[in-house]
Simulated scan of single mutants.
Amino acid sequence: MTLRVAIVGCGKAAENHVAEIKKLSNVSLIAACDSEPLMAEQFCLRHGVGASYTDFEQLLAEQRPDVVQIATPPQSHADLALTAIENGCHVMVEKPLAESSAVASEVIRYAERNGCKLTVGWTYYFDPVVRSMRERVARGTIGDPVHLDAFLAYDLRGRFGAAVLDDAAHWVHGLRGKLVQNNLDHLLSLVVDFVDHDSAVSNLSAWRATHSPYPDLVDELRLTLAGERICAQIAFSCRARPLGHFFTIVGSKSTLRLNLANQTLTEDSSSRLPGPLGRLACGLDQTRQLASQSFSNLARVIRSDFQALPGLGYLLSAFYRSVERDEDVPIPYAHILRVSTWIDHAVNGIRDAQAVSQ
């Protein structure tokens, strides 16, 4: 069975999608749609896609795809997803699924009622090192998780950041939570497997420097998720350098440290050697782990398997498999809704903090 796939939105995110779609033998990309005719036409020419559209409903009526991948700005995600589902399509949506948890819940319920599969673009959730981390925790390697810490250093001097700063009409400025709302999924999706089911935002602070070079954007956000057994610290910064994406799980036996930018995962554990020798042994063990993983990553580079978004291919493959075999989707809907609820709290907190600071 070959799944017929259409893409909506022909920007950078769509380029990432199509690169992974081309690797799948059971998928055929049949059409692309963008509100800008030239964007859609050039995308189709670059990738050998047969049909170009500016009208999404026309695409659905004429092409009747099995799956629609939505790679547009977040403001349009929910409406496009609901339209695709109404036409019997399974849907993969870039993050965030919707601008609020209420709308995200509506989209998920509609998909379930219509027998359609739905997933969201949590690419980091499926990075090889993240999957390895979850496996270690499941095996009990670190004991019981007791604390989580996730941090994202966002480079506003990069290509996307520069586009946001230079264009007052950029879609990021139209989000209630601006840049933070567009990126919190990257952090919260990492912790959702490990926190308690009753975890909620217990503390939030949003800060903007008096003479910030980033008008209309917060310089830093920090929030705490607290539950019955465990708490998680989440931090997002526009000022930290270099670009970084880190996740730490502190356990009752040892600690896992994940660097998603470098695709490394190391474990801190105590040494049986006494005093200074023990501290030296721990440092040498960290060096050994990093060297081993660097050589493994070098092998991936040689195999052309060290992409910027290594989890995207895994996510798409797992989602298409769930469609073909009518299996569970790769990301539980409960996870998506919990993260959407936390983002609501963060966005509201940002707005309150900005109002106070002004």
Rank of each mutant, 00 (worst) to 15 (best):
T141P: 01
T119S: 06
N183I: 00
V191N: 07
S189V: 03
L148T: 08
G121V: 01
W122E: 15
A104F: 01
L165D: 09
I108A: 02
N114P: 00
V191Y: 14
N182I: 00
D149K: 03
T210S: 04
R157K: 11
P128Y: 07
A138I: 03
G174T: 07
W122G: 14
D155W: 12
A111I: 02
A206I: 10
T210V: 09
F126D: 03
V195R: 03
L184G: 11
N114G: 05
V130M: 13
H173C: 01
Y110M: 09
N182H: 11
T141M: 07
S212C: 04
A200C: 10
P96Q: 03
R131A: 13
A163C: 09
P128R: 02
W207Q: 07
V107P: 04
R136E: 14
L165I: 09
G174A: 12
V172Y: 04
G140T: 15
L187Q: 00
L118G: 02
P213Y: 00
H173P: 00
W122K: 02
A153G: 13
R139P: 01
I108K: 00
G143S: 08
L156T: 14
A162P: 00
R109K: 13
A168Y: 07
M133E: 13
D127E: 07
T119A: 04
S205L: 14
L184I: 05
G143L: 05
D185C: 07
L204T: 04
D144Q: 13
N203S: 13
L179F: 15
I142H: 02
L184E: 08
H186M: 05
S132H: 10
L152V: 06
S205H: 10
L190D: 06
L152H: 12
A206N: 07
A168G: 15
D155T: 09
A111D: 04
W171V: 10
S132N: 14
